[in-house]
């Protein structure tokens, strides 16, 4: 066998393995969704769940599954996918596993804008989401501009992001201090990230954003992969580097902002999905689709754990925050060991 054929064979095998692992993730997600739909405070037989999903009227199950569990699961999955996609896109784009939207302040931009709209302007619904998206985009641009000194270096971008996010948190805290005390608890819950009381209507803008922007991101996946080789190499291979970077950054910021506007900044999902996906399917090749699946799985699982598995009930953001923090430290330690940050 010639060398070229051998390499091609290996590639095909790796591709098949990735496909298999990807399908496994998908199956896992479906199984988790089935579990959360049928088993809550009470058990609903899978057959009843299917009948509710098919639109039939089933006593009791129509309410518990159709009104409570389904909207919640849908929102968890969609928000998790959006965070996972956005996070992996940023990490790939900036070639740094730490440069996820929640660490460099884009989530806090969207969050600050949303809290401002809810508390001070008294807005609700789509208007809040729009302002949150605008806030996320604006903050992303501001960080980019502030980190610009004849080029954007990853280290400077991250540190500027940490500073910007500290400032935005003070704005958010100020907005909250203006809130009447009866909305404060609600606003705090929102800020930690929660899918409590989700409705299918809430999921609609998120689904639209996910379909549109997710398609844009996946269409750029190949170019993004090539750009991991470095800008010059990518340009030589026919990638329009600047355009790809702009499109990917805008789409990822949009996704994260919409998800934040609907479900709150669910801590660390954007940050964790990419690295976990890389662990599962291998670091070569695009991580976007696997990261979206991992994000959905994480959010769904954390929400379920927060509702039923832990003593007391916690919003999903608290669970992912508590889960994610040690993992983040582990990542820093590992990145430090391999010298990726120094």
């Amino acid at each position: 066998m010639s060398l070229a054929a051998h390499v091609a064979g290996l590639r095909r095998a790796r591709g098949r393995r990735r496909q298999r692992l990807g399908l496994m993730l998908l199956a896992l997600l479906l199984a988790a969704a089935a579990l959360t739909l049928s088993l809550g405070r009470s058990f609903t037989p899978p057959l009843d769940v299917l009948r509710v999903l098919a639109g039939e009227e089933v006593p009791v199950a129509s309410f518990t599954v159709g009104e409570l569990r389904l909207p919640r699961a849908a929102l968890s999955i969609l928000a998790g996918m959006a965070f996972g996609l956005g996070g992996a896109a940023f990490q790939t784009l900036l070639r740094n596993p730490l440069a996820s939207p929640d660490v460099i302040g884009i989530s806090s931009g969207a969050g600050a804008a949303a809290v401002f709209a809810i508390v001070l302007l008294g807005w609700s619904g789509p208007a809040v989401s729009l302002l949150a998206v605008a806030g996320g985009l604006g903050v992303a641009l501001a960080i980019w501009a502030l980190a610009w000194r004849g080029g954007v270096a990853g280290a400077r971008l991250i540190l500027v992001g940490i500073g910007v996010s500290a400032m935005l948190q003070s704005v958010t805290a100020w907005c909250l201090s203006q809130a009447p005390s009866w909305t404060l608890q609600e606003a705090m819950r929102w800020l930690t990230g929660s899918v409590n009381g989700a409705t299918l209507e809430q999921s609609r803008p998120l689904l639209a954003a996910l379909l549109a922007l997710g398609a844009v991101l996946l269409a750029q996946a190949r170019a993004l992969e090539t750009m991991r080789l470095g800008d010059d190499a990518a340009a030589a291979l026919g990638v329009r580097v600047e355009r790809t970077r702009l499109v990917v950054a805008l789409a990822a910021v949009g996704l994260v902002s919409v998800a934040t506007a609907v479900a709150g900044p669910i801590a660390f999902v954007a940050f964790l999905s990419g690295p976990i996906a890389a662990r599962v399917v291998g670091a070569r090749g695009s991580l976007l689709a696997p990261a979206a699946l991992v994000g959905a799985l994480l959010t769904l699982g954390a929400d379920y754990a927060g509702q039923f598995l832990l003593p007391g009930r916690y919003p999903v953001g608290v669970v992912t925050g508590a889960l994610g923090a040690p993992y983040l430290l582990y990542l820093i330690v590992r990145a430090g060991r391999s010298g990726a940050l120094s």
């Binding site: 705090m188 953001g317 925050g321 923090a325 040690p326 983040l328 820093i332």
Partner: peptide, 15 residues
């Protein structure tokens, strides 16, 4: 970064 991570973790845990 270690400080930012610890801060996020600590405030999550406070909540």
């Amino acid at each position: 970064l270690a400080g930012a991570a610890t801060s996020i973790a600590a405030s999550s845990l406070v909540v």
